[in-house]
């Protein structure tokens, strides 16, 4: 990549006014560094991944409201976690966490156990039990073609 080819596309890192450093070849054929504001193929991949997460969250939300799963699954998705990550945060076996996804099992959990989840998800016990109280932190999704 030549120095003048270092991509300067719009991207999600601009929200914090940052640029990333790249290595590129200067006119004299010597390697040098240059800052890049972003690159569309990367941004599209990232945006697709975020959209996928949003879908998982809304899907989990719907199933919680239909009493098909417990709020734990919704909060897990909201925190971009999967079963193994959540299990290591609460310090339980994966199968136990999975069992807590069952609405009936969830109803019977002790406050102590619920508190462990509430701490990981950074919510109160009430909010943990009732996902309609939860305010999703806004996840920005800037597609490259919208300014």
């Amino acid at each position: 990549m030549k120095k003048e080819e270092v991509p300067q596309d719009e991207s999600n890192i601009q929200s914090t006014n940052q640029k990333e450093l790249c290595y590129a070849v200067g006119e004299d054929g010597k390697y040098t560094t240059a800052l890049s504001s972003g690159w569309d193929p990367k941004t599209i991949a990232l945006n697709n991944a975020i959209e996928e997460i949003q879908n998982r969250i809304s899907n989990a939300k719907e199933r919680v409201l239909n009493n098909q799963t417990s709020p734990i699954e919704f909060y897990m998705e909201s925190h971009k976690m999967d079963l193994s990550i959540l299990a290591s945060y609460v310090g339980l076996w994966q199968w136990r966490v999975k069992r807590h996804f069952k609405p009936k099992v969830f109803q019977g959990l002790s406050n102590k156990m619920l508190q462990r989840y509430a701490e990981v998800f950074d919510v109160s016990l009430e909010t943990l039990k009732d996902i309609t109280l939860y305010k999703t932190p806004e996840i920005k999704n800037n597609t490259p073609d919208e300014n």
Binding site: C22, Y23, V25, W39, L46, A49
Partner: peptide, 25 residues
Amino acid sequence: HYLGQIVRMQEEIGTGGGGFRYIYG
């Protein structure tokens, strides 16, 4: 989704594939 993942692993998440070739250069 999988293809997107390859590109994300390649160009970001602190990994870098194309970028790593340039650092190696």
